Simulated assay, not measured.
Amino acid sequence: MIRLARVGATKKPYYRVVVIEKDRARNGRSIEVVGTYNPRTNPATVDLKHDRIQYWVGVGAQMSETVGKLVKKFPAAAPAAA
C-alpha cells in the first residue's frame, strides 16, 4: 500500500509518502519512502519519486485515495530533450 505517514509536530502536519504493508500502523515501519507532502506551505509542497511509485504500482501496490489525488495533481515533469 502507498499511503501517507504523518511525521510533523503537534498542529504542524508534515507527511511522508511511504510504501508499507496494508495491515501495519500508520507510522509503522515502512518498506520505502517515495516522497513528501507539506500542506502548510502556500501552495502545498509535494516531492514525489514518480519512477518508484510506478514500480510499486506495477508490482501490485495500491495507492490510498489521498496519494492518488496527489499523484494526479502533481504529475512527473517531462524529461528535457537533449
Score class of each variant (00 low, 15 high):
Lys11His: 12
Ile53Glu: 11
Lys12Trp: 03
Phe74Gln: 01
Tyr14Glu: 02
His50Asp: 04
Gly58Phe: 15
Val17Ile: 15
Asp51Val: 06
Gln54Glu: 15
Ser64Thr: 10
Val19Asn: 04
Val46Leu: 07
Ala44Glu: 12
Val71Ser: 07
Lys73Phe: 02
Lys49Ile: 05
Met1Gln: 15
Lys69Arg: 14
Tyr15Lys: 02
Val67Pro: 05
Ala78Pro: 02
Pro13Thr: 10
Thr36Ile: 08
Lys69Cys: 01
Arg16Asn: 05
Asn42Phe: 07
Ile20Trp: 00
Met1Glu: 15
Ala5Met: 14
Asn42Cys: 11
Ala5Gly: 06
Lys72Tyr: 00
Gly58Met: 15
Lys11Pro: 00
Gly35Phe: 09
Lys12Glu: 09
Arg6Tyr: 12
Ile20Thr: 06
Gln62Cys: 04
Asn27Pro: 00
Val34Ala: 07
Trp56Glu: 10
Asp47Ser: 08
Ser64Lys: 06
Gly8Ser: 11
Glu65Gln: 15
Pro75Asp: 01
Asn42Trp: 12
Arg3Ser: 13
Ala44Pro: 10
Lys11Tyr: 11
Ala44Thr: 10
Thr10Glu: 14
Asp47Glu: 13
His50Phe: 05
Arg26Cys: 04
Gly58Gln: 13
Arg6His: 14
Met1Tyr: 14
Arg52Gly: 06
Thr45Ser: 12
Pro79Tyr: 03
Leu48Ala: 05
Val7Ala: 05
Val67Leu: 07
Ile31Gly: 05
Ala78Gly: 04
Val46Asn: 07
Lys11Asn: 15
Gly28Glu: 06
Gly28Pro: 03
Asn38Leu: 10
Ala82Asn: 07
Tyr14Leu: 08
Lys49Thr: 11
Pro13Lys: 04
Gly35Arg: 04
Thr66Asn: 13
Pro75His: 05
Lys49Trp: 02
Pro75Tyr: 02
Ala61Phe: 14
Glu32Thr: 08
Gly58Glu: 13
Lys22Gly: 02
His50Met: 04
Gly28Thr: 05
Gly28Phe: 04
Val17Thr: 03
Arg3Met: 12
His50Leu: 05
Val34Cys: 07
Gln62Pro: 01
Met1Asp: 15
Gly8Cys: 08
Val57Ser: 11
Asn27Gly: 03
Asn38Ser: 08
Val17Arg: 00
Val34Glu: 02
Ala81Val: 12
Arg40Phe: 03
Val18Ser: 01
Ala5Gln: 15
Pro13Tyr: 08
Gln62Ala: 14
Pro75Val: 05
Gly28Arg: 03
Thr66Trp: 00
Val17Trp: 00
Thr10Val: 14
Val34Gln: 05
Pro39Thr: 11
Val33Ala: 06
Pro39Val: 10
His50Thr: 03
Ile2Tyr: 07
Ala61Ser: 15
Ala44Lys: 04
Ala78Leu: 03
Ala76Val: 03
Gln54Gly: 14
Arg26Pro: 01
Arg6Trp: 10
Lys73Gln: 13
Thr41Val: 12
Thr41Trp: 06
Phe74Leu: 00
Ile53Pro: 11
Phe74Ile: 03
Lys49Asn: 12
Ala44Leu: 05
Gly60Phe: 13
Asn27Ile: 00
Asp23Cys: 00
Ala5Arg: 13
Ala77Glu: 13
Trp56Asp: 14
